[in-house]
Amino acid sequence: MINKTFSFLFVISLVFIFFIFYKGLNKSSLYEPKNEIKNIPKFSALTFFEKKKINSENFFEQNEYYLINIWASWCLPCREEHPLLLRLRDNDKLKLIGLNYKDNFESAKKFLNKLGNPYEKILLDEDGTKAIEWGAFGVPETFLIYQNKIVLKFIGPLNEKSFDKIEKIIK
């Protein structure tokens, strides 16, 4: 009798384990932080050209859409998404803010001169610590901000799909 219940339980748990492993197979084992709506972080940074100090509290206006884009001249996917950023610049409901990540000033300037500057303002992140305040872990990453909240977050280069998503929300 005990043997029977025991083996029954065993089979049930085996089926359960099988099911979990089977499900687990189809999940990506790579981790990406989740897109949860969060408040924007507190930080202060220098601006790219003027080298003026800026604080996050009085930087963003309440009823304005902002797109924060983390980029660097050495990052190849950044070149890939650049045309999209230029197109987004033409939307006047949206303000593009660049966060220049661990870059060399001269080569960053060259990058902008050559490909065009989509940003209204560029902030400096020389040691990568500001990107961490934003919860980013690589370049490029992009955040859509409204009323001091992160509305959307994109890890990796923007594409047509993300472009449409942004346009849809701003409307």
Binding site: L14, F18, F21, Y22, L25, S29, Y31
Partner: peptide, 25 residues
């Protein structure tokens, strides 16, 4: 099967994983 996230990168293939899984059970 690549179900684990590890330093040692091996090619991941769910189909292979499924075969071993069924065989194992």
């Amino acid at each position: 099967s690549g179900i684990l996230n590890s330093v040692h990168t091996f090619a991941n293939d769910p189909e292979r994983g499924l075969f071993i899984l069924i065989f194992l059970f």
